Amino acid sequence: MDTNVAAWLVIAVAIAAANLPFFTEGVFGFIPLKPAPGSAEPRPKPFWARLAELVVLYFVVGGLARVLEGQLGDVFPQTSANMFYPITACLFLVLAFPGFVLRYLRKHRH
């Protein structure tokens, strides 16, 4: 796989993964939540569950990036002196912003 293709693949997967928690009501997009007692409809996913999904998906995308980097050559070592993880975590949150806006900040007209 070409380096360019691998980089764009990681970016595309990161955009999709960062927005997934905000566009679906199921956990990770396919596990439905149990309905509230006395209701037939599934309850909406709470914000803390969306945040937990976001953290898990951050590590999934990071794992994919590490695997692709390993296939292309040597994996660059991440030490505590560099700011790789805080920067990528902030970037992942920025990529999640469109989903957050559509879920929580946009007016929902019924």
Rank of each mutant, 00 (worst) to 15 (best):
I31W: 12
L93W: 05
A17D: 04
D2L: 03
P86D: 04
D74N: 11
R103E: 13
P35W: 13
T24H: 08
Y104A: 03
A52G: 11
T24I: 03
A49T: 10
I15A: 07
N19I: 09
F30H: 13
F97P: 00
F76A: 14
E69H: 05
P44Y: 13
V75G: 10
F30R: 14
A52F: 12
V94I: 15
V27P: 01
G99N: 10
I87P: 00
Q78T: 15
Y58P: 00
V10L: 02
D74A: 15
N4D: 05
L68W: 06
C90A: 14
G63R: 15
G70R: 11
E69W: 02
A89D: 01
F76D: 11
P44F: 12
V56M: 06
Q71Y: 06
D2N: 12
L95T: 01
A36E: 15
M1Y: 04
S80C: 01
V60C: 08
G29H: 06
F22C: 04
G29I: 11
L54P: 02
A52P: 01
V27G: 04
F59L: 13
P44A: 11
V60L: 14
A36W: 12
A16R: 02
G26E: 14
L20M: 14
P42A: 13
Q78V: 15
A7E: 01
A6P: 02
F47A: 10
A89F: 10
L105C: 12
I87E: 01
Y85L: 13
G99T: 12
E41P: 00
C90V: 09
V27S: 06
I11P: 00
P32W: 08
I15E: 00
P44T: 13
A14K: 01
Y104W: 09
V75T: 14
G70S: 11
C90Q: 01
H110K: 13
F97L: 06
H110L: 07
A36G: 12
L95A: 08
A17T: 04
K45L: 12
P32I: 08
P21R: 03
G26K: 15
L95I: 02
L93P: 01
P42F: 13
F92G: 00
L33M: 13
V67G: 10
L68H: 07
P86R: 06
L64Y: 10
G63A: 14
P44W: 11
Y58F: 15
P46L: 07
P46W: 08
V75A: 15
A14N: 03
S80R: 13
L20T: 06
P37M: 05
A65N: 09
V5Q: 05
F28V: 07
A89G: 03
A18W: 00
